[in-house]
Design a protein around this nucleic acid. Structure first.
Lengths: 249, 249
DNA sequence: GCAGCGATATTCTCATGAAAAAAATTATAT
DNA sequence: ATATAATTTTTTTCATGAGAATATCGCTGC
């Protein structure tokens, strides 16, 4: 007898007092839900396997389950969520094959993007990118643990933007999001040794118009990330409830 | 007073007579809707700008608008459909920038895929691919106009499969689908001169283990496709109702 | 004490109705 | 007769309720 009333309280049929009410108001709430969940997943707040309660989300955003359900549907098609029939929706748990494919895809994509950046990015844009890398360095020293992964990913997205190809940027963004699930599942050591350092070197190579070097550095950087992960069967269950019990019995 | 009753006729609550009834039956009807529409768009049966009637689809598949709506939502997030608020859902009409980005993305992706195919595909797989290219040649001569574009795209998808990276294959598939919209909008001349010919040459280069040549041929092939298109502002309205009037007044 | 079974509760799933917004149609007036 | 206003119809949009599937918990019997 729960089904807590979210009481949609159509506070006022039209509500709109006057002018700014036409600010379209809600409606893209579906998109808000999507980005909220995607962000939560991206920065590891929602771990793989977590169950997603439609009702909770509907409550929180003040809409009905119908629209939540729509949002979950597209998140599922992005492979960020998994829906088990009549069981519910869960944060996806990419398998080893998928993880490998994602790493490989990212390598190829970042290569292509570097090519585009090389032929398109202006000096000012590269300066801005360099500044971003420097800021990362700062934040890294302040040990702001939570936003570390978020910012680290941001560099790559901004870099992709400089490539000037919105399609590739979008594709890379989605792949990076899925990779955050892979890291959450399979990461072993959280050595924060570098990251921002690599980014700065890549920017240098770009400013020197040395494409080959930039790609080489990118390969190194990505290999470093992949190195934190052990993609062998039977990993990834490590944090499972059952597996944790094993370790403490 | 339409709203024709689709009369969901829950023919039998459980229906399942016994064993095979558990064949899951419907339910992935949502996916059926998605692939149906995607295919229709892919082979040009649904032209850009066409309005999509939820009711018609719901009727046809014997489900309620709710599930249709879900399917349309993910198609929209794939950029195959466009939803205008309170106006309805339409087949997407990619703009010129998007078209250019799509072509460029495809070039980069096909390059990456060729690299993967080169290092992974077995001799037998390449033989199978060659056979496919030959079949295309056959069909091309029979002038089977309708399935020409479909089959042409199929080669690239199968090729991507040989790369052994499911993620890249999926990405390419979606981009090819969007490009079919671009072609429908901006294609000028429908010279069916080559296509399958190019495919055969690419396979030859692959069997000869000549990556550079394969990539070069692929570039040529794609350039040929892009050549059929004029991406200048004010094209693409060519088939618009208003534009047609212009030409006849 | 434990295995199996049944009742309860939670949660998904989807069809349907009601409200809102455009579009289409008819009516009215200048 | 044309343009404007009013009405009707179509279609989207969404909240909600009823039904189905599954999990959870308590119970009885061994």
């Amino acid at each position: 007898m729960k089904r807590a009333r979210r009481q949609v309280t159509k506070t006022a049929p039209k509500a709109s007092n006057a002018a700014e009410a036409a600010e379209n108001a809600n409606d893209d709430v579906s998109e808000r839900i999507r980005t909220t969940l995607a962000n939560a997943i991206g920065e590891g707040a929602l771990k793989p396997g977590t169950k997603i309660l439609e009702d909770a989300i509907a409550d929180h955003f003040g809409v009905s389950r119908t629209v939540v359900r729509g949002a979950l549907g597209v998140l599922e098609s992005d492979h960020l969520l998994e829906r088990k029939k009549n069981r519910g929706t869960f944060v996806a748990e990419p398998g080893i094959d998928e993880a490998r494919a994602l790493f490989e895809s990212r390598r190829k994509l970042e290569h292509a993007i570097l090519e585009l950046v090389m032929e398109r990015a202006s000096a000012e844009q590269l300066d801005a990118l360099e500044k971003l890398a420097d800021e990362e360095e700062q934040i890294h020293h302040h040990g702001d643990e939570k936003s570390k992964t978020t910012l680290s990913g941001k560099f790559h997205i901004v870099l992709a933007d400089l490539g000037g190809n919105a399609v590739l940027t979008e594709v890379l963004t989605k792949i990076v999001a899925r990779l955050s699930l892979v890291m959450a599942l399979y990461e072993e050591e959280k050595r924060d040794d570098c990251g921002a350092d690599h980014h700065r070197m890549i920017v240098s190579a770009l400013k020197a118009k040395d494409l080959a070097k930039a790609q080489h550095l990118m390969d190194h950087h990505l290999a470093d990330i992949e190195g934190r992960v052990r993609l062998t069967e039977g990993q990834g269950d490590r944090h499972t409830f059952m597996a944790v019990l094993e370790n403490f019995s």
